[in-house]
Design a protein around this nucleic acid. Structure first.
Length: 568
DNA sequence: GCCGTTTTCGGCCCGACTGTTTTCAGTCG
């Protein structure tokens, strides 16, 4: 049982209790516990064995007992009982944006709706608009959100796919018959969402490997079974395709399974020009080479090596033909994180813990950027608290050798301007400005709000520009190019937010930003220690955008970065 | 249900926005 699965149980328990009208505080307590559990970087099993469960913030005697019950029995009795009382479809209904426990129960009571399908039917029959507190707008929103939900249903976040891949690879790699095993497909290309997981394995005994996968406890169903290939459904709800080839054909198969389809098709066309065919068996035809490596596949076609992140047929083939591919940024180029939260606002960990982890990661610098005063729910810092925190940070910075600790803030871009006056912002090392309210203003208003922040001489970085949450919330309606133009003019950096549910800027926007000459920065926006590890996802966006290290300010040496920050 | 310049039970919960109303409830960050 993973921490995240236990967190899910408590989250769902909170949903169930909320629907059943349990006290706000109790519901919040379960949500808080779930949130803190998912941010832990040690396994609950280990903590349980050491008797440390009650050390988790938000976990008291009661919840600690329930965690123990889940670890011992694999489930929680209370959770199972409540699931019997509340139709599972109703929870899905309440997870739609704009529908909470109140509207959910009104809909359920008046119309007997207990699933998304029934809700859709009711909305189409124009029955929702007649319910108390609802109208035409609500009805249309619901239909829109159901459509969106269905659209997202078949895909999972890249991070989920990679966690799943790692787990299966670890499990299968124990077999001595497995010579090589790697993830391919969109996961290897680091696409932001993944529809199914492709694994390629080198082995001379495919049946053994296939049976091992079918026996894996988290595999729920076998969908396709062939001699060298199996497709299974997993407990996570995404299918896994495993292809087994002989070791000499491993990289050929890995390459083909990595795709993308368009990229591969272009390579086939190039092969045809040499009178070769490219397929499962490599190149065939007069004088065709047999490539053992991906590098060899590309060099055979007169191309320089194209990393998986670029294989989308977005101009990479032409560049590779002319040996013009950029030297892509790598995770090891990152010298610091310029957007993290601590428990001074809504982060889980202390300043000291966050700094310690940044040093462990080998960073040279770190900016602490908690929320500003208006974001009350996130314990945004009042002016007094801000100045108090910055005194502490400056003192800690002086005690640190070979490490720069920057004062910082994630200041809200309010409808009426920034959340602190210029006199305050001018003394802060790193000012990240982000929108957290008024998402649904019209495009002009929102764009101008952000541009005003870009133009502010004290603002260094615009955080998560479009505000999207992948598979959950659409981006704000803004004029990206207008903002890029301003950012280039005022030398304000744009953030690639590395959180796997944001990845904001996305690869296309990041590429466009670089074309406009805008400086970028890749930050985790971490609210706990574990999520400081998500930098790699931001780097993958930058790689897919074709960025080099020098395009990203937090790959710069401290001196160069400080010079950039001082100009703001 | 958790927490505590704590030892037993009261406090935790803010404010903007939206869509529905005609003064506000529900939702969300």
């Amino acid at each position: 049982m993973h921490n995240i699965e236990i967190a899910w149980i408590f989250d769902e328990l909170a949903d169930l209790l909320e629907f059943l009208g349990e006290s706000f505080f109790k519901v919040r307590a379960y949500r808080r516990a779930a949130h803190n559990i998912s941010g832990l970087d040690t396994s609950l099993r280990q903590m349980h064995e050491r008797g440390q469960l009650d050390r988790i913030p938000g976990v008291g005697k009661n919840i600690a007992g329930k965690i123990a019950e889940i670890l011992d029995t694999g489930k929680l009795r209370q959770h199972q009982e409540l699931l019997q009382k509340v139709p599972p479809g109703l929870l899905e209904v309440m997870r739609l944006p704009g529908i909470g426990p109140k509207k959910g129960s009104i809909i359920c009571e008046h119309l007997g709706v207990t699933s998304l399908d029934e809700l859709e039917e009711a909305a189409r029959a124009r029955k929702l608009r007649k319910l108390p507190g609802m109208g035409v707008k609500t009805e249309q929103d619901i239909l829109r959100h159901i459509r969106m939900h269905r659209h997202h249903l078949e895909r999972v976040l890249l991070s989920t796919a990679r966690d799943l891949a790692r787990e299966i690879i670890e499990y299968l790699s124990v077999l001595p018959e497995v010579e090589r095993l790697e993830v391919a497909g969109s996961t290897r290309r680091w696409q932001e969402t993944v529809g199914d997981l492709d694994l390629v394995c080198a082995s001379t005994t495919p049946d053994l490997v296939i049976n091992a996968l079918i026996d894996y406890p988290r595999v729920t169903d076998t969908l396709i079974l062939e001699e060298n290939r199996v497709r299974v459904m997993t407990w996570w709800g995404i299918p896994v395709d495993l292809e087994i080839v002989t070791p000499d054909k491993f990289e050929l198969a890995l390459h083909r399974a990595t795709g993308s389809k368009e990229h591969y098709r272009r390579l086939k066309e190039l092969a045809l020009k040499k009178n070769w065919k490219l397929g499962v068996n490599g190149f065939t035809g007069p004088g065709a080479p047999f490539p053992l490596t991906e590098e060899h596949i590309y060099s055979s076609l007169g191309l320089s090596y194209i990393p998986p992140e670029l294989r989308e047929d977005r101009g990479e083939i032409e560049k590779a033909l002319n040996n013009e591919l950029p030297q892509l940024i790598e995770l090891s180029d990152i010298k610091g994180d310029l957007h993290v939260h601590t428990n001074w606002s809504d982060g889980t960990n202390s300043l000291e813990q966050i700094i310690e982890r940044a040093k462990e990661k080998g960073y040279s610098y770190l900016a602490i950027t908690d929320h500003s005063q208006s974001l009350k729910i996130a314990k945004g810092l009042s002016l007094e608290r801000l100045q108090e925190q910055h005194r502490v940070i400056r003192k800690l910075d002086q005690e640190l050798a070979d490490f720069h600790l920057f004062t910082g803030i994630e200041v809200d871009i309010l409808s009426k301007g920034l959340d602190y006056p210029d006199e305050i912002l001018q003394d802060i090392d790193v000012v990240v400005a982000s929108v957290h309210t008024g998402f649904r203003q019209d495009s002009n208003t929102l764009t101008n709000r952000i541009i005003a922040a870009v133009e502010n001489e004290h603002v260094d970085i615009i955080g998560h520009l479009t505000g999207r949450l992948i598979c959950q919330r659409e981006p704000y309606d803004i004029d990206i190019e207008k903002i890029l133009e301003a950012a280039a003019k005022y030398n304000t950096a744009l953030e690639i937010n590395a959180s796997p549910d944001r990845l904001d800027l996305n690869d296309e926007h990041a590429r466009l930003a670089a074309q406009y000459g805008v400086k970028l920065t890749i930050n985790t926006d971490a609210h706990d220690l574990r999520r400081m590890d998500e930098m790699v996802y931001g780097v993958s966006v930058a790689r897919r955008a074709g960025l080099k290290a020098e395009d990203v300010i937090n790959t710069w040496k401290p001196k160069q970065l400080i010079h950039f920050l001082r100009k703001h």
